[in-house]
Design a protein around this nucleic acid. Sequence first.
DNA 1: CTGAAAGCGCTTACAG
DNA 2: CTGAAAGCGCTTACAG
Lengths: 346, 346
Amino acid sequence: LETTTTTIREVARRANVSTATVSRYLAGRPIRNREAVEAAIAECNFVPRRYARSLRLGRSDMVGVVVPDLTNPYFAALMIGIETVMKAADLKLLWVNAAESQTIEREALSALLGYVDGLIIAPVCETDDLPELAARTGTKVVLVDRLVHGSRHFDWVTVDNFAGSHMAAMHLIRAGLTNLAIIAGPLDSTPGRERLEGFLSACNEEAITVHPDNIIIADFSESGGYTAMARLLLTLKLPGAVFCCNNLMTIGALRCINEKGVDIPGEISIVGFDDFPLADVVKPGITVISRPAEEQGKLAGHLMVERLRRGNTSTEKRQITLPTTLVSRGSVRTCPTHVSRVDKRA
Amino acid sequence: LETTTTTIREVARRANVSTATVSRYLAGRPIRNREAVEAAIAECNFVPRRYARSLRLGRSDMVGVVVPDLTNPYFAALMIGIETVMKAADLKLLWVNAAESQTIEREALSALLGYVDGLIIAPVCETDDLPELAARTGTKVVLVDRLVHGSRHFDWVTVDNFAGSHMAAMHLIRAGLTNLAIIAGPLDSTPGRERLEGFLSACNEEAITVHPDNIIIADFSESGGYTAMARLLLTLKLPGAVFCCNNLMTIGALRCINEKGVDIPGEISIVGFDDFPLADVVKPGITVISRPAEEQGKLAGHLMVERLRRGNTSTEKRQITLPTTLVSRGSVRTCPTHVSRVDKRA
DNA sequence: CTGAAAGCGCTTACAG
DNA sequence: CTGAAAGCGCTTACAG
């Protein structure tokens, strides 16, 4: 396997044409000596170096994507959506996993900065100033899933975390459950904050008090969900229901509940934010707040393509909020007293 | 937010030094007018364009990774491993999802070719010739998880699929189960082929015949596993046990079994290749053949770093095969007659 | 259609 | 330590 470094010049020499002609061939334009050029390219295994092109054109045709947790199936779906759109626009993707750490995210973003034309970011934290720094260097920025203070200056796609969590709480309350608990995410992140707010807001409207011990702030990780659930199970009065603010924490909570032999929904009901594989296969199936993750990724991709390809330089920002839906399975118990009340109505 | 395109030259002008000095500062070397340069950089939000650097240095410091299915948690773990190593070596990653399609993979790989110094590939199919084409252009290639014909010319990291599947079959046979079935992956992929071979080889050694109807070739997807399981459940004699050749197909099979109300392990036992989240939470827990996915990714990353950074130009290839382990949970029934036989021995 | 030539923004041997 | 200058491999207005 030879590894000679062949350039457009070498191809031109072999095909007896100028470098301009080879370049035109590569760009798909018609040339006279097409066959000779093709043969020369094949002969010396020529592949044009993209960075030379980038330098000439002043753009890299690459977009960076920074997500807080690559292993979360929600982000996997988001990535698929983004990738679909980017591929169609012939933009390359640079992925970075921030691992829910602002330090890692900061390093990653600044490392990416000189490489990409645009950046799709799900910021770990709302106080993050990196999106603004990036924008200031001329890099196009689209926020997805999570926002930052000053988000009004950016294109973004989110879901209605508040409404979704409000809906989750109402679902539990309407089922007649009491002594509600919540395993929340970091409150300095958009979904962490909004989901807690939506949940508490519904409780407040329905005149339901949530005991402070039943509000646990965790970290969106599976182990965080496990630990939080273990704490809830140690409280004097077992909560009647728990709302887990993301899928990984739901899985962690389930593992804990499973190990302690607590019965769902007999002893405790559970609703999770974000669907996950097997949510319908575990017994009972887990009721979740679902959202169109892949669609969300596609929209974020489209916003980026508009800025990069369609030359959308409008200062008017496009900001999209997608709705969530409740997927009812078997993890929420309907209390007898409540059932009868419903029955009488029917 | 200004988006002026500032260059090293503009910085040099502002700081009253030469571009060489600015470049040296950026490379971390000591310069006299450090403060002036820092101020100038901050003033005009300067970020060096990496492609100009790449052109000058003749390398992009980017590595492409092509995996057959980004949404598979196994590949997510693999990616985390690769990313960890690449970050430490200051190499950027370009991810591509081949979606188990050779067409998509081919396009992706050729699109990536001019961008990267190296390529880590889990080829969709063993007849793939893209790794060789890539290598011929001087791009460093490391194969991971899956191989191609001619793999002896490459560095690679795989797991012992044959031994793992052999172990799965032996586990079922030793439990006294009969009428075994297998949901296999595509036979033109390395894990698809090797896992079927390992399974059948164990059956053969133990003089167990697998009925042709009980060998179903699927596609490593969840829906493929579902459909395959549905077919197995329609056979005249329900299989005593089924071996699913990857985690997504196991999940699909579980969903099908669950819907049809068939009891695990009472009516059918199940073993899956590759662990997955919730495998220990579903009831019963699913017995799986597990492998060190993140470790595998790290090793693949290391091989690449050696080629790119340590200038390992040896034609001697490093080829690593990792072992698998059986994680026993509750999805395999031990037949009474067999138990007594074992008991007598003890 | 074609080729000669300039230039994209960096880095680095060179001379001081 | 410093600056002037060459050059990495492409693309494209320019003139023919």
